[in-house]
Design a protein around this nucleic acid. Sequence first.
DNA 1: CTTGACTCTCCCCTTGCTGGAGGCCGTAGG
DNA 2: CCTACGGCCTCCAGCAAGGGGAGAGTCAAG
Lengths: 270, 270
Amino acid sequence: MYRIGDFSKLAGLSIKTLRFYQEKGLLMPAAVDAASGYRYYNDSNLEKARAIVALRGLDFSLDEIAEVLREFADESDLVEYFERRKAELVERIRRQEDVVSLLDRLIANENAARGIMQQANSRVETKTIAPQWIAGIRFRGKYSDCGSRFAALGRAVGRYIAGPPLCLYYDDEYREDDADIEACMPLRKPITADGVEVRELAGGEVAALLHRGPYELLGRSYAKILKNVREGGGEIAAPCREVYLKGPGMIFRGNPKKYATEIQLPLERE
Amino acid sequence: MYRIGDFSKLAGLSIKTLRFYQEKGLLMPAAVDAASGYRYYNDSNLEKARAIVALRGLDFSLDEIAEVLREFADESDLVEYFERRKAELVERIRRQEDVVSLLDRLIANENAARGIMQQANSRVETKTIAPQWIAGIRFRGKYSDCGSRFAALGRAVGRYIAGPPLCLYYDDEYREDDADIEACMPLRKPITADGVEVRELAGGEVAALLHRGPYELLGRSYAKILKNVREGGGEIAAPCREVYLKGPGMIFRGNPKKYATEIQLPLERE
DNA sequence: CTTGACTCTCCCCTTGCTGGAGGCCGTAGG
DNA sequence: CCTACGGCCTCCAGCAAGGGGAGAGTCAAG
């Protein structure tokens, strides 16, 4: 017969926990002194305590443990319990992995945006960008329809995203309503995913301008960069790109005055 | 200005939750009617509510959310938070995967044991067993030293275990103290793991006897099977095996009278 | 004016305990 | 013999993140 303190050390359960388990009817002491109220535990209690610890380690709730201890005395009876618990855990793990991939996305976006914004100023520059893997969804519509495409891309390729989202504009001229747009997410590596096209987006020389401010004012920056390119005698070679370095985020809408978008016009090679 | 019911639908938070968030100082209604106590929310509240929902979706605690909302207004400030949360989640996922692999082990053991026990009776039989992949730890000592080896095997190859544990006895004669034993776990497929030897255990013809009862009585079953083999003119070819179909488990010690162990004596081919 | 839908506050419940206050029991030391 | 100390007791409060429900007051439409 052990007093509660000794038993607590043997069983690896705190005194409070032992009293709590008694209150729940999960583990009753072998004897309770009527006068002093002292609890006394024996070896059979110890065995039960170890079983409880093992089951708790398998993430069973105390109610389930109580049920198991009441009704079963052999592990082979527990297989269904194990199966059920496993299914629950697998599901929980899946959800947590989704959250992790979402976090990855946010982190990658911020890091990549930080990198680009550090070297960019507000003048038109010519630079060479590396090719990159992207997942894209091409559609016809308005700019504001991009949001749902980016959400779909996030769901489809979540954990492989390597930086801030971008759009390709396939029209030669500006269109308000029926533009030919591809919403893209850069990827760490090529993957296959449902409903999106994964390919390598060509690198090469681009004229780039960092636009700071709300999207309504993008027109001015376009005018500036187009003027600059024409004066330099360049030719625009492919769909132009907008890289959304800073925009309304998942958490904060943020301040449109602080939005940052890089306009990239790929140049014809001579 | 929305009343709480409408706002609740817009924000996707229950009325109870909104009141609770107010109590916590997380989301204060834009106005509270002094006479009636009615809460009134506006669009700025809505934006904040969406931010809260997003952060809660990332598994942040309400305290952290409160802190984030108080001190930040831009996602780029949150990268460290994201990193921390991700690290925590990854750790949690790892632990849950450990539990899943433990559950897998228990399930596999029970299923395999069930299969063998259904076809075995209590007579010596000759049967052909298939080769199987095993992970083993060989040592010198007593039978009771197996326990810790099985635990080590479980940790090392947890999620690949395909059935009940077994022991190989390399001595020609019975030894109490200094036996040459290998504790083994059957594997679903060959893997490499630290501290254990993984190899294919040969199949072939064996004399087998299902021993039911406590380990102390194994001697009798050994006498029976050895007598039978000698009378049949067979020769024992390799270390003999004990497969622990039912024994003291992780959860229940069980009843030793119900333990089941299959003794297998591999036979020399003629 | 009534009716029905909303909303209010207040309290208890959940899970698995932990912490603390105030008090009892037995023993060892001065 | 008195006291200090450790161990034990019961009871209360509280954690996260709300959910359920009672009883009472409010709002808007018919």
